[in-house]
């Protein structure tokens, strides 16, 4: 009885009700190998289109909008952020929620958190898409996993801070974001696909390996290759 009470009050506290849980690893569309030139070209066109939609809002614009929300509670700025990120967050949530209304609700919860935390965004220390992604990700973990979500705490006296001298954060940040975007645009599709599966579908790398019919070692080495390239791209620009 006591336990049941505790469970009931815990679920009552949760702001997000998730009526239908998707299985831990939803069906992943298995990408077809794209080796011929025509298919490769199509991928490039598709990517170009995608970055066109992304260009609806530049990183600087997104930053300015978020600052306006944090500083002035600017509803028009909030709406502009919603128009851009709302449908993207919903798509991210929909990877796990079969019910569209659950994805919609999780997206709303994310945007409410964006509104409430906007003043805590430090423009010099991150870009808006990363910041929003981590908020959405944490909400998604909390909605689907009934466990605690242990995280490091920068205010803990045992925390070891970074002692490398801070560069001109804002400028550096902007250049890095640009370099990262360019580096990701030229990642081989097979590596990019693995990153998408890792970030969007709640799957372990061994289940990804099973789904794609690849040895686990191949999945791991592609992940390592992808990040080695991204890291090199950032270091080269310095």
């Amino acid at each position: 009885m006591v336990i049941r009470h505790a469970v009931a009050s815990v679920s009552a506290c949760m702001t997000i009700a998730v009526p239908i849980l998707a299985p831990a690893c939803p069906d992943i569309p298995i990408p077809k190998p794209r080796r011929d030139c025509a298919a490769g070209l199509q991928v490039k066109i598709k990517r170009a289109r995608m970055s066109e939609t992304a260009r609806e809002l530049t990183k600087d614009e997104a930053r300015a909008l978020l600052e306006a929300v944090g500083r002035d509670r600017d509803m028009a700025a909030f709406e502009a952020l919603f128009r851009h990120y709302g449908p993207r967050i919903k798509a991210y949530m929909a990877r796990l929620a079969r019910d569209g209304s659950v994805a919609e609700e999780l997206m709303q919860e994310t945007m409410i958190a964006v509104w409430n935390k906007a003043a805590q965004f430090e423009p010099g220390r991150g870009n808006v898409s990363t910041w929003i992604f981590t908020i959405a990700r944490n909400l998604r973990i909390d909605a689907y996993r009934k466990t605690r979500r242990p995280d490091f705490d920068p205010n803990d006296p045992a925390f070891v801070p970074d002692d490398s001298p801070p560069a001109d954060a804002a400028v550096e940040e902007r250049q890095e974001a640009e370099r990262l975007r360019n580096a990701m645009a030229v990642l081989p599709e097979e590596q990019l696909e693995l990153l998408r599966l890792s970030f969007f579908n709640d799957c372990s790398h061994s289940s990804i390996a099973e789904r794609l019919n690849l040895p686990l070692g191949t999945v791991k080495s592609r992940i390592r290759l992808a990040f080695a390239k991204l890291r090199t791209a950032l270091e080269d620009g310095q």
Partner: peptide, 24 residues
């Protein structure tokens, strides 16, 4: 942070799912 930046970039490029008409 680099990985989270990559996650943010993938979120930018995800095929958007239209929000409900009354959503905002």
């Amino acid at each position: 942070s680099l990985m989270e930046d990559a996650g943010g970039q993938l979120l930018e490029e995800i095929v958007p799912e239209p929000a409900m008409a009354t959503s905002f």
